[in-house]
Structure formats: structure tokens, C-alpha cells
Amino acid sequence: MDFLPFWLTLKLAFWTTLILLIIGIPIGYYLAYTKYKINLLFEAIINLPLVIPPTVLGFYLLLILNPKGIIGSFWHKLFGKSLVFHFEGIVVASVIYCFPVMINPLVSGFRSVPKNLIEVSLTLGKSKLETLIRVILPNMKFSVLTGIVLTFAHTLGEFGIVLMIGGSIEGETKVVSIAIYDAVEKLDYSTAHIYSAILLIFSLLTILSVYILNRRLSSDQA
């Protein structure tokens, strides 16, 4: 049994989640606490990956990430390898794909923190950054956790974009979902069964943990 695809998938999920968490907090903060009309457009763009077919996204990414594309050529000059067909490329793809999955819980988390709590912290002389780290984030930790868990789980199931820009390369872009697809094509049903069962159980546990989180969240507020 080859567990390399699982390892690769976990690595992909880890980096996707980490990157999204880092860029998601400032974006979520901005969206939750400002009221410009343009924000509507931003939120719409962020949520686009929820409805757009992965093939459309994959197609555009193939165009801009390939060694002659806008971002791809820049990357090629910097690191000497292309983004398509490489791990870094599928990280970029899954960050874009999972954007709404991370941002949405964060935005609602930011909005759920009582305004006066923030104001108290600010009037007591804490800076905005300190308020964010010491007051806001600890008070929305369940939202942050939900975002992390969902992003992680969402990445595990990613298929369409990786299929289009990954190229099923072992240890590089052959994640579990692709490995299952390949195994079915090869008529290797036993491998497909084992991989699928592991994914199924893992996904169920993830969703279960989100529900448990949410229950604790609501009982906390009560």
C-alpha cells in the first residue's frame, strides 16, 4: 500500500490552511469592520469559488501559472521551475479554491465579537493590533477553528483543479483524490476502496468536529 498520496494531501492541506489563515485574518477583519459599498464586490469575488466550476478556475490558472503566463514566468525566473505540475502550483490553486471556506467563518466570527468589548480595549489604550490579538481573536476562537477545520477538509477533497494543473505526478501533485481516480482507471479497485474508505471516515470525523465546535460555540454564548 502506497501512502505517499495521503502524505502529500496532508501537506497540501497544511500549507493551504496556514496561508489562508495568515491572509484571511486581515481580509476578514477588513470586511467585518468596514462598510464600503465596494466590499459587496469583494465578498462576491471571494465567494466565487463556491459556485464556479473547478474546470473554469483550472483553465485560467493553467493560463496564468504556466511558464509563459503572467505569474508563472515571474515564478520561473525566481525559482527556475514552473508552477503548473508542481506542488507549489497546487498550493496556489487550493488557496484560491478554499478562500470562501476560510474567509466566511472568519468574517462572521469578527462580526460576532461584541463591539463594546473592542471599544473598551481601545479606550484602555491598547493598540488596534493588540486588541486584535488579545481581545478579538480569543473571543472568536471557535470561528477560527471552524475556518481551519473546514479549509483543511475542503482541501482533502480537491480534485478538479489539481487534475487540470497537477498532472498526477507522484509525490508532487498526485493527491489522494487523483490517486483514487487513477486506481479506478487502472481497475485497481482494492486500492481505490482503501483510499476512499480512509477519506470517507476522515471527512465524517471532520464534519462531526465542526458540529461539536458549533454546539460549544452556541452554548458558550448562551
Binding site: 511558464p67 514552473s82 505540475f85 508542481h86 498532472g167 498526477s168 505526478i169
Partner: peptide
């Protein structure tokens, strides 16, 4: 040796896109 299988046409376009 690592092998990747698919249609010849897909290989053709992937090599054009810089596949390793």
C-alpha cells in the same frame, strides 16, 4: 522510473505547458 498514464493528446498538451 515513475509512470503517468493518460491520453496521448493530454500528454501532448501537458508537455507544451511545461510538464516535467
Amino acid at each position: 522510473v515513475e509512470t503517468i498514464f493518460g491520453s496521448s493528446g493530454k500528454g501532448f498538451s501537458q508537455i507544451q505547458a511545461g510538464a516535467p
